[in-house]
Computed example of a mutant assay.
Amino acid sequence: MATVDARLASLRKFLESHASGETVFIVEGGGEFHTSEDPFSYLLEHGAYTPDGTRIVLFPHSIEGVDPLSLSLYQLIDEAVEKGRLTLPALESDEIGGKALE
């Protein structure tokens, strides 16, 4: 039962941090950095650094009970934080009838 209570407490903390409409990153030294931008937009525009140059080291998120699509998006964010910037691959089009969609 203690495990369930701990998981619920963790989930409540996670939801509270996301319910505020803010994205929370953990920075070097263990502090928190809050921004009103979603994690993708922030990492695309600013990289894994705060406005004062502090390195972002973690985007806290749950991994238990997360659907596969959300988990893959979290992994993309984790990789961006590790690399220092979010870079998206070039878009590719599927071919239909031997021709690429444009």
Rank of each mutant, 00 (worst) to 15 (best):
L69H: 13
K13H: 13
I96N: 12
G47H: 03
E22F: 11
S17W: 12
F25N: 05
S41P: 03
H34V: 00
I63G: 05
E82C: 00
E37I: 00
I26N: 07
E64H: 09
R12G: 02
G47E: 02
S62E: 15
F33I: 01
V4K: 10
Y42H: 08
E95P: 04
L58C: 06
S93A: 14
S20R: 15
A80V: 01
K83P: 05
D52N: 12
T50K: 01
K83F: 10
A90C: 04
L43P: 02
K99Q: 15
K99D: 14
L44V: 01
T23I: 07
G84E: 08
G29L: 07
V57W: 02
L58N: 09
E32Y: 13
E102D: 14
D94K: 08
P68V: 00
E16L: 09
S17F: 11
D52W: 06
L69P: 03
G29N: 12
T87W: 11
K83S: 07
L86G: 06
L86I: 05
Q75W: 09
D67R: 11
H46R: 05
G21A: 06
L71W: 04
E92A: 07
G47Q: 03
E16A: 10
E79R: 13
T54H: 04
E28R: 14
G21Q: 10
P89H: 09
R55P: 07
E92S: 10
S10A: 08
S17D: 15
